[in-house]
Computed example of a mutant assay.
Amino acid sequence: MQRTLLERLDPVTDDVVSLVLRGADGPLAPWEPGAHVDVALPNWLTRQYSLCGDPADRGTYRVAVRYDPLSRGGSEYIHRFLRPGRTLDVSLPRNHFPLVPAPRYLFLAGGIGITPVLPMLRAATAAGIPASLVYAGPSVDAMPFAGELRAAYGDAVRIVATREHGRPDFDALAAGLEPGTLVYCCGPASMLAAAEAAFPAGRLHAERFQPLPRVFAPNTAFDAVCARSARTVPVPADESLLDALNHAGFPVPSGCREGVCGSCELRVLDGEPEHRDDIGAPEGRMYACVSRALGPRLVLDL
């Protein structure tokens, strides 16, 4: 973890605040567009936020947080109780939504989904790569950074206030897509579904804040063999691997507990995991919050 000082907390819209976190012990770890960090809050919760500042600025990180009325305590604490001057521990950046090289880009964002897209658009423009953004939200006043985007990128950014103009026509955008263009989309589930229906799968990169509803076979019990500790942890059918390990004294980091943030990644030495995450675990890795074993045991690098 990196120790940071909350330098600024600024309202961006009525329900979104921007946090500027300055490294308390010197430069912060480098990151690339699409990355996110875990922020450990003073109320003992850890939450994940996309980095939306400038990767060239090693002194600070910027994130933005929308208030969720159904908050599990993260966004409510930030909006109601967090104040500048507070020290916060922040993880090293992780990136499951990297900007792949392409001759041109089309970015699609909805609401707070603009946060990972901001540095992507900045990077593409700085590199001289043609890029455009379609940014949708209920009204301009409710859309974080809409003014900043218009001022910086002009006609390359199309702001769509859906209450007035309806949703963007993704089918028309797909029909006019130039060869080689990659499409990046982040926003609510309805926007992601519309993008997946309109754009070819090989051209579309999407990031989800919530996992897709999916059905898996019933849970079965298995053993987690911790190779470095020479211990075996039974994982009952009604308990996650993450919880079983934590209860056995292995403090595996965790954040979302939904298979979308990647903070609970483990190295698998033997056995076959049943991957239930939404970000695609790398070869030889698994996410302990949701994934399980396809056989009677897994050997883990713990």
Rank of each mutant, 00 (worst) to 15 (best):
P144E: 03
P55F: 01
P213Y: 05
A194W: 03
E265F: 02
A172D: 14
A206G: 03
P211E: 02
P200S: 12
G187F: 07
D301W: 08
Q210V: 15
G262Q: 00
A237N: 01
L70A: 14
V134D: 04
T60F: 09
Y49A: 00
A201K: 10
A123Y: 05
L294M: 14
D270W: 00
P188A: 15
G113F: 04
S254E: 02
A193G: 08
F170K: 00
A102W: 03
L28H: 07
V157G: 12
A288G: 06
Y67V: 07
E274I: 08
G26R: 06
G147M: 06
Y67E: 09
H36T: 13
R167D: 09
L269V: 10
I114Y: 03
G295D: 02
A24Q: 00
H79I: 00
I279M: 10
M120V: 12
L241N: 06
A29N: 02
D15R: 09
A206H: 04
A152S: 13
A136E: 08
A288D: 02
V100M: 04
I112V: 15
F250V: 09
M143C: 10
H96C: 08
A206I: 14
F170I: 10
Y287C: 04
H79K: 00
N246C: 05
A197Y: 01
G128R: 07
S50F: 07
P236Y: 05
E207M: 11
D169W: 06
N43E: 07
V225M: 04
A131I: 11
C261Q: 12
I279R: 08
P188N: 13
V235S: 01
V252C: 11
D68P: 03
R94C: 10
A244Y: 03
A174L: 05
F209D: 11
G53N: 06
R86M: 05
A197V: 06
T4K: 00
S91I: 01
P101D: 11
P282G: 09
S263C: 12
L9M: 14
L108I: 15
P253C: 12
D270K: 11
L92D: 13
A248L: 05
G284I: 07
I279G: 08
R83L: 14
L5H: 06
S254G: 08
G111H: 09
R267Y: 01
Y49G: 03
D141H: 07
P296R: 03
L118P: 01
L269R: 12
H79L: 00
L133D: 13
A40R: 12
S139N: 05
A124Y: 07
V157C: 08
D171L: 10
P213W: 02
T232D: 01
G53V: 09
P273G: 10
Q48E: 03
H79R: 03
G34Y: 03
G180F: 05
V290Q: 01
V90N: 04
A102Y: 04
G154S: 13
A152G: 08
P296D: 11
P296A: 01
L133W: 05
